[in-house]
Design a binder for these strands. Structure first.
Lengths: 205, 205, 205, 205
DNA sequence: TATGAATGAGCGTTCATTCAT
DNA sequence: CATGAATGAACGCTCATTCAT
């Protein structure tokens, strides 16, 4: 018997009282802990509740189902970095040179990975892609990035495509480096090289 | 109680007769099917056996546990593309220009994604990273790529790092495009642009 | 592949409400029933839960595994008779003659076998010895028995050994008689003869 | 669902050929090994066959089912010691004194435990009693023992009962000592004391 | 409302036994 | 007939979720 289901992922009620918020926070923290220490296979609602120190029935008073817990986990992470992202993107156009603009972007992505590395790692490495919130990976920033970078480009036949490629590359490289060779992030040469990779691609002379 | 365990993932018995090889093949095929149609969450040994049309106990005569089934799935995929990879890598140095060499590499990666796209997608998008075989993601090809590309580079301060970055970028972009915008692969412009991205990074004049 | 494993046998949760105590009791009762009616081979957790009228998952909320159920079964039986044993042992020294003292002991053992005969039979005949709780067979009472009987002995070269032998004999005879020829227990001659066997061994004139 | 079944326990065919005998022997040896090293819980036909180095289907050509394997194991053990037992029993009446006669019996029982200690331990400690062949525990020797010992008894009100008790005691003590304190068997005092226990019970002056 | 208890459905795995070459 | 393969029926145990106090 093979079946697939879609469930509501909205939190059941907004934690208005302090007590409630603490409970939800504990659930989020516990979920992150388990994802990192045990992995996706160990992430079950009973374990989350136990680790969080809340009763399993309480968990279900704040979340309609397991999916909602996972969704909230991602929503929180996205929210926590969205401000940074927005801020960075808006500043890009004001930068004097492409090099500076790209540096801003790269550093933003790095920051994104370092702000809550466990959460990020848990989400990006343990959650099967089918469990991911659309918003999470999907760069809404793409359009904004295109607009921001367009003025700097020279001889780029398809700016949209180029931006797409640039976005993917930056994310992928920063992600891999963060998880496989974090020591490289300390040497500025990585950021430099990343910026160079993009710069030479977007300005072709 | 939170615990993590590692199990042997080697096949239990290698099928010697043809009948059993068919059984194992059916298991592999069924696993792939389920990963694609239902996702990681629906991949359980009973479902695999049922879909494969074999008894669950037969599955366990050839695989000591579920992990081993998953591992074999990955092993087979890696094996099936390793030949192509080896061949491509050995030919790189013989290419006249960097542009041609890079094109060979990119096309190899594209081929890798297209040879068994469902398997590849299933493994790379559904399997939590902690379930992946080490060999799978690990680019042994990195060293070889460095050697092959080194003669072509100009003004690259850290060829090792550059190659690492190039490798990640190509994989990431081809992967994302394959899964999100497969129509782009038909227009040669993507490959062209990818090659351009790399070429301008490795030859800086 | 041949392997042996030891698992924790401590109860997982102690039932705090009355409802759950009833559940645990039902599980114990069902286990005893199955051991008696079907035997060790039929003692599986699903059957226990079904017979107890509780959900299988409930069973596992109070017992971490099957072993724990079996262990608890034994623990309860031991506990239920320990009081009698203690009481009897403490009274031995106060008896006027060896004959009376031995009678007390024998009657205690008989009582032990009759207090919960099904449980006792199930445990002692169906449980492979490797499944037994250490405490169960282990006579802690040996030391106490030695001390109690010592003053009565005459010409016994090794009182320790003699007590050991006496203990084994009483248990074995009562056990076998209980299970094979229970009608003998009604005739007081058996107890008499048992006492005589011991008396003549411990007082040699 | 609770059910109980009785199956035929006769070997399917007598191993006439040499090859066959070797196979059966290997199966017996493997069963004993597993019983001792893993216990009753690990004794399954697949494991037996694997350990014996024979195909599982071959096992079922010599034994109709698992019960038959177990039965044969016991039958062989009984057979291997029956000669000794018969011999000893027939000699009892010819002994000059009760003390010598009892010594013969005790030494016979000791020998029985030492002749194939693993087999004996496996059968007596791991096999649930419901798996035992009737013949095994059941002393047919009882009647013979009564007859043999009767001439020596003095003032024993119920010789039948006394013999029954004596038989149980000897077996139980030797068994326990063998398994718990084997070092005691070397000191002759144990046998001496055992004989004394019986002697003073059967001759009351 | 917070909590201990409960549960249906199902998953990973085993085992006694039979089939087919 | 010896062997690899196959299988039905369980069994131990878990998990997402709900009930009841």
């Amino acid at each position: 018997m093979i079946a697939k289901a879609k469930l509501a992922t909205k939190p059941r009620k907004s934690p208005s009282q302090e007590r409630s918020r603490a409970t939800v926070d504990a659930i989020m923290q516990a979920s992150t802990y388990i994802l990192n220490e045990v992995g996706w296979g160990g992430l079950n609602t009973n374990a989350i509740a136990e680790r969080a120190g809340v009763n399993i029935a309480s968990l279900y008073q704040f979340f309609p189902n397991k999916q909602a817990v996972i969704a909230e986990l991602q929503r929180r992470h996205v929210t926590s970095i969205r401000a940074d992202i927005q801020h960075a993107l808006q500043n890009i156009s004001n930068q004097p040179t492409l090099r500076v603009a790209l540096t801003v972007i790269v550093e933003m992505v790095v920051k994104e990975h370092q702000s809550a590395p466990e959460v990020h790692k848990a989400i990006s490495e343990e959650l099967p892609l089918s469990q991911r919130c659309k918003q999470y990976d999907q760069g809404e920033m793409l359009k904004e990035m295109v607009n921001a970078l367009l003025p700097f480009m020279k001889n780029v036949p398809d700016p949209q495509l180029a931006t797409y490629m640039v976005g993917i590359s930056i994310k992928a490289i920063v992600h891999q480096v963060t998880n496989q060779r974090p020591e490289l992030l300390n040497h500025s040469s990585l950021v430099d090289e990343l910026v160079t990779l993009m710069e030479r691609f977007l300005i072709r002379e």
